[in-house]
């Protein structure tokens, strides 16, 4: 039973790590759904949110504020930063680029990525900053069934729970609020939405704000796990293969895609790694996405595209 216990442990840790990818992928999906922009900057936004959070938190703790108050103020501060970013991006980049083709918009978000990465580190510093919001030790489960039990890290479980809350929250937001319904209307048809009096600029600001808040949530989990640092943006790139597998427009797809990628790469590392040299986690997600694309160009959950001319 040792082998199976190990497998379970790898699987669980992979699934939970996948949730973290899903958290970033969610931000992509939100923006893509509402504006058709493939936002390469989502990873940079996680970095920005994380830096704003951890630096203001450290500052206020150093000033002697109680920890709970400091956390609340720091979260509000980071949210404010994300709101300012959303406004700047909408006002100065996406607003003027309205009606451009997808590739141009995508390249402009690469530009935004570099601005955010440079700006965030200039404002808040470019070291590794540890964040302590969640417990980071581990549980040992099923010690009776498997020798040594299955190691499950608490932070990963926290991440999973937060992701669940977030998905429910977003679903409610889209279904129950006026703004949420307007967002869905815009996603379906820009022109039609405008003609019934929905302001595109306002909607785009809102959607970047929501994506920024999702980035903040992702930053709390990732920051606790790895410390807030520049390399977070590279991990966030893995949200791209997640989207390929899950589809660009599906919130459940982002979650499932994240789980597949997370579990897949951990299992591949554990069982394939010893044969072809370690570290295959580095590329496995991308190659898996490539294989999926070759088999199904529209992704696992995408609809078949009928081309017209």
């Amino acid at each position: 039973m040792i082998a199976f216990g190990q497998f379970l442990e790898v699987l669980v840790s992979g699934l939970l790590a996948g949730v973290l990818y899903s958290l970033v992928a969610l931000g992509f999906v939100l923006i893509f759904k509402a504006s058709g922009v493939f936002n390469f900057a989502q990873g940079a936004m996680v970095l920005l949110a994380g830096l704003a959070l951890v630096r203001s938190l450290d500052f206020m703790v150093a000033k002697g504020l109680p920890f709970w108050a400091a956390i609340i103020i720091a979260l509000l501060f980071a949210a404010l930063i994300m709101a300012i970013t959303a406004w700047l991006v909408e006002r100065f980049v996406l607003g003027p680029l309205i009606n451009q083709d997808g590739l141009t918009l995508f390249m402009s978000t690469i530009g935004v990525t570099f601005m955010i990465e440079g700006g965030a580190q200039m404002l808040f510093g470019s070291d590794v900053y540890p964040l302590r919001l969640f417990p980071s030790d581990a549980w040992f489960l099923f010690e009776s069934s498997f020798p040594g039990g299955i190691l499950v890290s608490k932070i990963d479980v926290w991440g999973g729970m937060i992701a669940a809350v977030l998905v429910v929250g977003l679903a409610l937001f889209f279904q129950k609020t006026k703004t949420g319904r307007a967002l869905r209307a815009v996603a379906d048809d820009h022109a039609a939405a405008q003609s019934v009096g929905i302001s595109l600029n306002w909607i785009w600001f809102i959607v970047w704000l929501v994506a920024g808040l999702v980035a903040l949530v992702a930053a709390t989990v990732w920051g606790t796990k790895l410390g807030v640092q520049f390399s977070i943006t590279f991990l966030a790139l893995k949200a791209l293969p997640v989207l390929i597998i899950g589809g660009f427009t599906s919130v459940p797809g982002a979650i499932v895609g994240g789980l597949i990628i997370g579990a897949g790469e951990k299992i591949a590392e554990a069982y394939l790694g010893p044969f072809i040299g370690g570290g295959i986690e580095y590329w496995f997600a991308y190659v898996l996405a490539l294989v999926v694309l070759m088999a199904r160009p529209q992704g696992l959950f995408g609809e078949r595209i009928i081309e017209r001319i």
Partner: peptide
Amino acid sequence: IPSLRIKGLYLAVATLAAQFFFDWVFIRV
């Protein structure tokens, strides 16, 4: 070859696969 079936952003991810795969190859092999 994937470019024959996929377009735009999907292809960009395929080229990212090349980037990360060969980074790894030249470090590990």
